[in-house]
């Protein structure tokens, strides 16, 4: 369990994280979403005790990260791809960190196998592809067999196979009862991986809700109705607060009425209806809409 408690982080006059408060529960994958520059990485560094909050505090399993006796067993972090010295082999990199964290030597082999890098163990990190470095980063995060895992943009650089592998890994970690927080700036990836979403923009909390709730909210309230007698149906449905438009022949877009009401009216009047579909905006669009007002680095509309 990770508790971010009213955390604010300022660098000089710039406020990067602004009164953020949320809890990451164990046993599920929590997606940490926000546009670039929203404060995700800063928040993650504060959870891991690397940056100090200007105000508020962060606890991991009830205590500040630095107060744990075995910090690497409490929380494992992937903060940026390639935070290993390029001149060191993958194995030496992991061995040095295992020693620093007083972890048994065999964990090095365990995590190398877990991420599929056994054959590259003796290779210098500088020759790795971005995807291999990302795997090494994930191996480093898992070194302490931690109860909580924090991964900052782990999908970056992974090929499609790697993305699928990561998805299964994250689900597996959550199924084992671990706390899993994964950041991304891509909504589409999170809808495939996350059970719960924490969305921030410009350092502030925008949403903290189950994935399904977000998906439901993402709908824009418009129902598409297909009917061979669209003109008659249109007259049936029009009323105060209801707008009906037709973009294609035989298809009406109805706003202001739900599916049940439309179906009942059509049935009552004997107008045939061939399709009734609530329209969902794409999740990516809904996410962008949600963060647009808060986004610091948006492009200027023409």
């Amino acid at each position: 369990m990770i508790d971010v408690l009213d955390v604010t982080k300022r660098y000089g006059r710039t406020t990067v994280v602004d009164g953020l408060r949320f809890t990451v529960e164990p046993g599920r994958v929590t997606g940490f979403l926000g546009p670039n520059g929203a404060g995700k990485s800063t928040t993650m560094r504060m959870i891991g005790g690397l940056d100090a909050p200007t105000a508020g505090r962060v606890t991991v399993a009830g205590r500040a990260y630095a107060e744990h006796d075995a910090p690497l067993r409490t929380l494992g972090m992937l903060l940026e791809a390639g935070a290993a010295h390029p001149g060191r082999t993958a194995e030496a990199h992991l061995r040095a960190l295992a020693a620093a964290g007083s972890l048994p030597r065999r964990r090095v082999d365990d995590v190398l196998a877990m991420v599929g890098l056994q054959s590259a163990a003796g290779t210098r990190v500088g020759t790795f592809s971005l995807g291999m470095r990302q795997r090494l980063g994930i191996a480093t995060a898992l070194l302490g067999d931690p109860a909580a895992v924090l991964l900052d943009e782990p999908v970056n650089g992974l090929d499609p196979d790697g993305v699928r592998w990561l998805r299964e890994l994250l689900r597996g970690l959550a199924a084992e009862g671990r706390t899993v927080l994964v950041s991304s700036h891509l909504m589409s990836e999170m809808t495939l991986t996350a059970d719960h979403l924490v969305i921030i923009g410009a350092g502030r909390l925008i949403a903290d809700e189950p994935l399904e709730a977000f998906v439901r909210r993402a709908g824009d309230g418009v129902v598409e109705v297909r009917s061979p007698d669209a003109a008659a149906l249109r007259n049936l449905l029009l009323g105060p607060g209801v707008t009906v438009s037709a973009s294609r022949p035989g298809v009406l877009e109805v706003a202001g009425l739900d599916v049940e009401t439309i179906a009942a009216r059509a049935a009552g009047a004997g107008v045939p209806v061939h399709g009734l579909t609530p329209r969902t905006a794409s999740l990516e669009e809904a996410f962008m809409e949600l963060t647009r007002t808060a986004s610091e680095y948006r492009s200027v509309p023409r």
Partner: peptide, 22 residues
């Protein structure tokens, strides 16, 4: 300095949060 330039220092400090023993 090589530990700072490569970013490894963050992981080292994660393993040893008291930092001065490093």
């Amino acid at each position: 300095t090589s530990e700072y330039s490569s970013g490894l220092m963050r992981w080292t400090f994660a393993a040893v949060p008291a930092r001065w023993p490093v």
